[in-house]
Amino acid sequence: MRQVKHIFIKEFRSYFASPIAYIVISIFLLVTGWFFFTTFFLFSQAGLRNFFTLLPVIFPFVVPAITMRLFSEELNIGSYEILLTMPVTFTDVVLGKFLASVAFIAAMLIPTISYPVTISFLGQLDWGPVVGGYIGAVLLGAAFSAIGLFASSLTRNQIIAFIIGVAICFGLTLIDKMLFFLPRSLLGFFGYLGADFHFQNISKGVIDSRDILYFLSVSFIGLYGAHLVMQEKR
């Protein structure tokens, strides 16, 4: 397990060694800031509801951009061979990269704390949903990271990895908006699959074990998939 730490540190540092990190963070802050504050004063409500409802729509584009290089780049330049011939297990590699990506998403969310702080000067802010929202955002980011990691393990082309990641993540966000196409008997099941549904529950400040379990299971499935792909490549 000590290897997870070393891989995590290496991956996390290399995010900030390349311009990708700064580009992704800037775009994320610009887009969320603009969408959030253009409508904020119309509602005259001191809350972050609108910010958090944006995240399930923006994360499917931002998170795969963060994870796309994790395996694809290694496969492309061949450093994958060096990595795997050092004394590490597949689990070490997958977990290290996953945690680095989650930590990066957390780092990306830190500047947005200025939003609730600003708002708390404007009116009475209820901190419960804000804290819940951030916990939910990290969980959502983790689940999408795992999916992005899986997409990245499939191909040596980062652009393809990005597109596959976006497709799956956006699918999970949209699935509970598409329910009217489905027969009534399947509604419950597909409703449960929707990432947006679970995220909105948490961001209301209601931390339910079912929602947490959902994000953890999506993360697990993504990571396990990446693990299987690595196994298969041998």
């Binding site: 290399s14 060694a17 390349s18 330049i77 061949g78 450093s79 994958y80 061979e81 060096i82 011939t85």
Partner: peptide
């Protein structure tokens, strides 16, 4: 182990 053409992390 040194793989063929030493594929190392470029950045």
């Amino acid at each position: 182990y040194l793989p063929e053409s030493a594929p190392l992390y470029h950045d």
